[in-house]
Each structure stands twice: as structure tokens, then as C-alpha cells.
Design a protein around this nucleic acid. Structure first.
Lengths: 220, 220
DNA sequence: ACCTGAACACCGTTCAAGT
DNA sequence: ACCTGAACACCGTTCAAGT
């Protein structure tokens, strides 16, 4: 990166394209996509806009991605990795006393990520834009994030803090609860109801507790 | 001035061409939008495609809607009315014993609607396409559906089946739980996880029960 | 209350011809 | 591993001129 000097003129004579020619453009395009998401949201995320943001021609992306969906899948995969980080961070910060606190951390990390990066979160759950079935890297990133939840649930089951042996059904319930609130938030649906007056932090805490309670009941 | 005669005209009795010229095109466009949703999903729902489906020129919709968002808002409003019907139907079919059964009916009606009409459901929660803040008819249809949930929760609180006096927080929790599962379903996210093997009907029943349990706990 | 038809800027995608 | 530049079909939106 030290080879780039912009000092003043954006269109300098010495091309900083050395890095690009060695395969860095792929990463640059993903980074450009994330920047556009933060600035303009999913609506502004066109292939051509990403190319402009990365300062390459509008068809340069086709050397690294088969089509728009493949590019957006890479951006969404980066989003799922960031989500996994957010979850892992909250799990690590949870008190070590009860294993349920680790599960609470999963929910907090999920909701905090959605609130902090709503545009990325929205892209992550727009399969018509990312076509996950065709993009293993995205499915794997998705599976890693989901695995954090499942392993926490399984841990709670082994310690007896949660009933049952199969972690998938209770994990699905926890995911649904927390995902539902996250979606209502990032789509700004709550703003259009009387719920808009309630602080999101409070709703988030309630959702995490309600999910735990809902899942502690018998799930035969 | 040739009048139009359709052999299978669903809105019979009055001459179709006069209806169009007296404002029936609005309804025809909404119906066309719903048909396109069923056939091609949200992705196929362009203004021009709706006009084609209604057999009018591509700019005819502008006589009834300011722009694409206003048309889609009308389609989404029809969707929320259908959701309200689905909820009301399930509430009415619930056993009259416990008021909690009415609340269970709300959840069942919501999830059944999402599973039966996924494309309409997806449009309903795409505010970037419908701009609800600018379209009172949509917000009102949304409020009617949400009101069915809130009034059921309030009833349960008055009968002592649910704790608390303010129905909004528990309503938000129930909504989040059921909405989350609905979204994971209509976006086909469950298909990409091990959860795809579980039958949706079973997940739906579990979600409704988990929501009730989660909300019966103390919600200070 | 519509119609046809043209136009504009934008999009995803595909070329052809270069460095 | 890129570039320019053109092209295509599609889109939302706005005209102009008609019935």
C-alpha cells in the first residue's frame, strides 16, 4: 500500500494500479461495495456504482465475478464474517457463570450488529441479490455465524440449562426471535407503529430474555 | 370508441371500457400487481410489467399513481388487508376457552399467510419499494393488522393470562418471534441451513408456543 | 382518462479491440 | 488483468401530441 501516492491530484500519472493487476481488485470491489452500503444503502448498490467507487471501468468487475450476484455474494459473505465477530465478541464478554449468558451474548451480538450496520444486514438477507445456493463462500460464512448459535445452544443443553438434545429446534426459535426484531428494526417497520417510541436497546434486551424463556419450556 | 368484451371478465356486469375510464384502472393495476407477485415474485414487479399485465400503455399508471412506489404501496396495502383476514380467520377459529388461544390464532394466521403468499409478504416488508411514510392508505392497512395483535394481547392482559398493563412490549415480542420465522421462511434462508429439514408447520407451532412462553414471564 | 411514441438517464450484460 | 467504447434490452420517468 505504500506504493500509492495521491498527494493532490487524483488522476496522477504514475498508476497505483500495480496492486490491482495482482488480484487486489477483487478485495477492492468488496470494500467498495461495503462503502456504498454504508453511504447509499442496498438501493445504491449497483454493479456500475461499485466499479465507480473502486475507480475501475464498469465492466472490470467481470474479470473477478461472473455477474452482479457473485459480487454481492462476496460483500454479503464479508458481512456474515463481521456478524460472527460481533457475536463472538459478545459471547466472550458474557459472564462465565451460566452458559445461558453465552447464549444471551449471541443474541446481543446479533442485534447490535443489525443496529450498527443495517445496510449490510439487509443485503445479507436478500438472497435474490446474492443467490447463496450458487456461492459456497457465502454459504460457508453463513454457516459459521449460524454455528456460533448452534454450539451455544448445544452447550446449554449439555449442561442442563436448556432441555432437549437436538440443538436445531431451539436454535431456530432463538434465531427467529432475534432476527424478527432485527428485521423490523433495519426495515424501519417499528417507526411506523406505536413501538417506534420504545428504545431499541430495551426491546433488544426483552427479546433476548423472551427467547431464552421461550426455549426453556418443554420442546418435545 | 370500441367497447371491450372479455369472455371471462371477473368484474362483470358493467362495461369494462367505461370502468377503466371511470377509475377502475386503479383497481386493475393493483390486481395486476398481485398477479405478477404470484407469478414472478417481487423481482418481476416493475411498473412497466404491471402496465403490460393490465393491458395498458406503460405510462397509463401515472394517471392513478404518482410513481412506482405509490402503486406498490397500494398493492402492499391489499396484502396487509389479506393478512388481517388471515389473522381474523385463525382467531375466530380458535377455541373460546383461553384468551391465549386467540393470541395463538394471531400467530398462526400470520405464519400461514406468509407461507401461502410469500411474494406478497415480501413486498409488504420492503419499505424502500412502498415508502409507507408517504402513503397513508398503506400505513392504515398496516395499523389494522397490527391492531389485531395488540388487541389480543390487551385482552390477555385484562384477563390475567398475560402480565403487565401496556400491550405494546409483549406485542412487539410476539411480532418479532413470528415475523422472524416468517422472514427466514419467505427468504428461503432456512433452506440453506440444517433447519431446512424440519417441517415448517412444526417450526411454526413451536414459534407460537415459544412466543407465548416468552411473553408470560415477567416483563417489567 | 386514456392512447402512441419518443426521449432521457440508469442499469446488467456482452461484445470488439486495445495495453 | 485490466482499459475504452459501443451496443443491447430493460427500467422509471417525463414529455408532446393525439382520441
Amino acid at each position: 500500500m505504500a506504493s500509492r501516492f495521491f498527494s493532490g491530484d487524483l488522476m496522477s500519472e504514475t498508476p497505483p494500479s500495480r496492486d490491482y493487476h495482482h488480484g487486489d481488485l477483487r478485495r477492492a470491489l468488496v470494500a467498495a461495495g461495503l462503502e456504498i452500503l454504508e453511504r447509499d444503502g442496498v438501493e445504491g448498490l449497483s454493479l456500475r456504482a461499485v466499479a465507480r467507487q473502486a475507480q475501475v471501468s464498469h465492466n472490470a468487475p467481470y474479470h473477478h465475478f461472473a455477474d452482479k450476484a457473485e459480487l454481492l455474494a462476496a460483500v454479503a459473505a464479508a458481512g456474515f464474517d463481521a456478524l460472527s465477530e460481533s457475536i463472538a465478541h459478545q459471547v466472550a464478554a458474557a459472564p462465565a457463570g451460566s452458559l445461558l449468558d453465552g447464549l444471551r451474548g449471541v443474541g446481543r451480538g446479533y442485534l447490535q450488529f443489525a443496529a450498527a450496520r443495517p445496510a449490510v444486514f439487509r443485503l445479507m438477507f436478500r438472497p435474490e441479490l446474492t443467490r447463496p445456493a450458487e456461492h459456497p463462500l457465502l454459504k460457508e460464512a453463513e454457516a459459521r455465524a449460524f454455528g456460533l448459535l448452534v454450539s451455544q445452544v448445544a452447550g446449554c443443553q449439555q449442561s442442563g440449562d436448556l432441555p432437549g438434545a437436538d440443538p436445531l429446534p431451539p436454535a431456530a426459535m432463538c434465531w427467529s426471535m432475534v432476527h424478527g426484531l432485527a428485521v423490523l428494526r433495519v426495515e424501519q417497520v417499528l417507526d411506523e407503529t406505536p413501538l417506534g417510541d420504545l428504545p431499541f436497546e430495551q426491546l433488544a434486551a426483552m427479546a433476548v430474555e423472551a427467547a431464552i424463556r421461550g426455549v426453556r419450556g418443554s420442546m418435545h
